[in-house]
Design a protein around this nucleic acid. Structure first.
Lengths: 231, 231
DNA sequence: ATTTTTGGTTGATATAAATCAATTTATGAG
DNA sequence: CTCATAAATTGATTTATATCAACCAAAAAT
């Protein structure tokens, strides 16, 4: 493992991870000693819903999608995980099993961290805990939005919301646009693939979006925002 | 404010709050100085979705329901808040506005705590932060369950899930059973009031539950659990 | 005690969305 | 390059569920 001392600090890996900035030298050592770096190939599971969760993952490179699995092979996509995010955080405290499945959208590199290391660090180091808690808080807010969408919106609103969410991610990671199938997008909305296609076409004919193969370009963000809010 | 020193400890109020056990004397003082105790009457809002959130609440006495509001006066009930729980925690970190509305189901007593006090304490005191993070973690898991229910279940499954959830709460607080209207129950399921009534009747005629006015008694918990899982 | 309002119930109807089925297009394997 | 498989698309049909409307029972207000 490459160590990169810099600014009188030691880094837990070779990229700068703001999340770990609060940690002291010895604390970084705790994580470093307990962790393993793992490579996942595209399509592989980083976590599996219902499986025992003895560790959590910290995504260093690549992208993954966090999803809930239902009956009949149905999926609901919660979010795209990008580098610098934890996976399985929601299972650290009171859960023995992962709440969701995480599938690699591309080849990934991730650190595997023992759950105990994290729990201990949070107790020991308030600043680090604060950072983790912020992440939970964000996740929470985003879940409220998801519940709201599922309860109150209909197809057009659900799709508009999903496209805007994805577009936000594409702003930071343009290479991701074009990698999701229609089925993937439908699973972000909680609607059927067929209706997803129909609504996409309808939005294209209203000049709200442009479809270029798998790529979706947003032409009228404010209209989409209206659609998202009112239906 | 009554102080009750005990076990060489000071309590932040006159009931024992496990959540605050980790705090030191001076830290308790921080919260105590910044807080106010408020009484809410049944039906009043403890938080209002979209309103600026400068404080969070700690429920000491009474019950409240946490809900998301949609268009056309539609509601979705997320959970029942019982004494010892925080309200508005999800807005402490990155949110300026409350994500949800909280309505008093009975007369309530709550502490109002400045957001800054909590954020500061988490940074300063890891043990306290750990406790707060655990709460977030629980809330998170429960939200995954809600999303899953909304996406994968249909009426019977949604109702079964809601009845089992409520029943769990009634075990600790039997006085709550009989206080929820059909509309309230429907809002816990994300279904219409009419269909909620129909499904309740249908479950009663299958001897899964017994309806006594507003009270709902569960007769066959394991069957309800099956229904919850498979639809 | 009587009226008004709120909550509960039931059946009929409308509708959003899923499913089914068939076809076309794209992608990947040998 | 060709075949096989997966993804995308479109129309027709079914289904689950919401909505509408009417009525009844219970609770609250006058």
């Amino acid at each position: 493992m490459k160590r990169v001392p810099q600014d009188d600090k030691e880094y837990i890996c070779d990229i700068d991870l703001p999340c770990f900035n609060y940690l002291e030298r010895d604390e970084i050592e705790i994580i470093r000693s307990g962790k393993t770096q793992i490579a996942f190939k595209k399509g592989e599971n980083l976590t599996k819903q219902g499986a025992f969760s003895s560790y959590l993952l910290f995504l260093v490179k690549g992208f993954a999608v966090e999803q809930l699995e239902g009956e009949n092979n149905k999926k609901f996509n919660l979010k795209i995980v990008t580098p610098g995010e934890f996976i399985g955080l929601s299972s650290v405290f009171d859960k023995v099993k992962y709440d969701y499945t995480t599938v690699a959208l591309s080849d990934c590199q991730a650190f595997l961290i023992e759950k105990e290391s994290i729990a201990g660090l949070i107790k020991k180091n308030g600043g680090f805990g604060y950072n983790i808690t912020r992440r939970y808080c964000k996740q929470n807010s985003s879940l409220f939005g998801t519940v709201s969408a599922l309860t109150f919106r209909q197809i057009s609103g659900k799709l508009a919301g999903a496209l805007l969410y994805l577009n936000d991610i594409y702003k930071s990671y343009p290479e991701l646009n074009g990698t999701l199938t229609r089925r993937d997008i439908a699973s972000f909305c909680g609607i059927s693939e067929e209706n997803c296609v129909r609504e996409l076409k309808s939005m294209e004919s209203s000049s709200l979006i442009k479809l270029e193969g798998k790529r979706v370009l947003i032409l009228n963000e404010s209209s989409l925002n209206n659609i998202k809010e009112r239906g």
